[in-house]
């Protein structure tokens, strides 16, 4: 299973970034191989619709679970269409978030924050 975490830094010791669309990095963890990979969130550079572009990035990377803080409704639509599960992470390291997720200590997010689409 491939898990993605929105991150404020480029190591697994960095703290999770609660923003999804405009976080700096995404960490991708493959729970079968234990391989981790950190990629730039190219979507953060978008003028508008960063959440949608970030969602597309996850879709293109075959992610199944996303650990983050808030997901806007636009990004939520993309993630839902791709059947990506959204999990509310904690403001602790990425490693700890993965561990907590595996121990089923994190809550699955159903609701989203209101739309702030339209930023230019």
């Amino acid at each position: 299973m491939k898990i993605c975490i929105s991150s404020s830094g480029n190591s697994m010791e960095s703290v999770m970034d609660p923003r999804f669309g405009r976080c700096e990095f995404f960490a991708i963890v493959d729970t079968e191989t234990n391989e981790t990979k950190i990629i730039d969130n190219a979507a953060a550079k978008s003028g508008g619709g960063a959440g949608i572009a970030a969602g597309q990035l996850l879709v293109d990377n075959d992610i199944e679970v996303l650990i983050t803080g808030n997901v806007g409704p636009n990004a939520n639509d993309v993630l839902k269409a791709a059947q990506i599960k959204i999990v509310r992470g904690k403001k602790v390291s990425l490693n700890d978030n993965v561990k907590m997720f595996q121990n089923k200590e994190l809550e699955i997010i159903e609701e989203t924050v209101p739309s702030h689409s339209g930023m230019k």
Binding site: A43, G49, I52, A53, Q56, V59, A81, A82
Partner: peptide
């Protein structure tokens, strides 16, 4: 402007 996404052919 990221006004579309393509997911599973949709």
């Amino acid at each position: 402007f990221n006004s579309m996404a393509v997911v599973k052919g949709n």
